[in-house]
Computed example of a mutant assay.
Amino acid sequence: MDGWHAQVLTHERRGPDVAVFTCRTGVPLPFHAGQHVTIECPYRPWQSRAYAMANAPRPDRVLEFHVRAAGVAGVSAALVRRLKPGDMLRLSEPRGTLALDSFSRRDAVFVAGGTGLAPAKALIEELARFNRTRWIHLFRGERRLSDFYDRPSLDRMERQHPWLTVLRATSDEPGEDGEQATVADLIARHGPWPDHDFYVFGSSGMVSETLIRLDDLGVTPDRIRHGTYDITPAAR
């Protein structure tokens, strides 16, 4: 595939099947928060897979990616288990139309399951550059407390931005509040949401469940944007 070359700067394993890594392109990659690229790595030549950028565009050309491996083979497995600083990647042209509604003044709710956190972080980072009046809730859903792989970064964002609140739900064990709930349950518990923009990212099952719950809560489709970004059904 034609595209941009990028060198891996950092690579961190955040669990047995999750990695967060950064890379820098040689020339600027023109994209907006919410878009994705396909990645080809040297360990799976001629194969590629789509991943969302986890940051808004930066002057230093650094890109952050969150990857979950579903098995022992494939591009995701190579990016999680074999990738290392110094490796070269090939990135495709950015794709996707999902973006912030720059004309909206409504408060916003971001819902992220699994590695669906990546586009949510990118959009919040972009919003932070100009937000002065909008209150933001980020709901994170995972199966277990140990699955919240990017917690220090989110806690830091919450400290930096007084308008941001992060809430977490675990579907397979009691969460921080001692209760077991899906992220859709947590959203309903903290509602109603009469005038909020919603951005929903995660596995197809998690997204579908959340959209159904939002419909039950009276959130109209014109206030919802969503995308499927996690390759496993784990994040509900």
Rank of each mutant, 00 (worst) to 15 (best):
G114R: 11
R132L: 14
E125A: 09
R144N: 04
T133G: 03
G141P: 00
A118F: 08
R134P: 02
I124K: 10
L117G: 06
E126M: 13
W135G: 09
I124G: 12
H137P: 00
R144W: 06
G114I: 05
F139T: 02
L138P: 06
T115Y: 15
I124E: 13
L117W: 15
A128K: 06
E125Q: 12
P119D: 09
W135V: 15
E142D: 09
I124A: 10
K121P: 04
T133H: 11
T133Q: 13
A120L: 04
F130H: 10
R143I: 00
A118D: 12
A120F: 01
F130E: 09
R132A: 15
E125G: 01
W135D: 14
I136A: 07
I124F: 14
G113T: 09
L117I: 15
G114Q: 06
R129V: 07
K121I: 07
G116L: 08
R129W: 11
W135E: 14
R140I: 12
L123T: 04
A122Y: 08
R129L: 15
R144T: 01
G141I: 01
L123V: 03
F139C: 03
I124D: 11
A120E: 02
I136E: 12
A118Y: 14
R140H: 01
G114C: 03
G113N: 04
E126I: 11
T133E: 11
P119I: 10
H137K: 10
T115N: 08
F130T: 15
T133P: 00
R134S: 04
A118V: 06
R129Y: 04
A118I: 04
I136N: 04
T133C: 05
R143K: 07
R140P: 00
F130N: 02
R134T: 03
L127E: 11
A128Q: 11
L127S: 05
T115I: 15
G114K: 07
A122T: 04
A118W: 13
F139K: 01
P119Q: 02
A128T: 12
P119T: 08
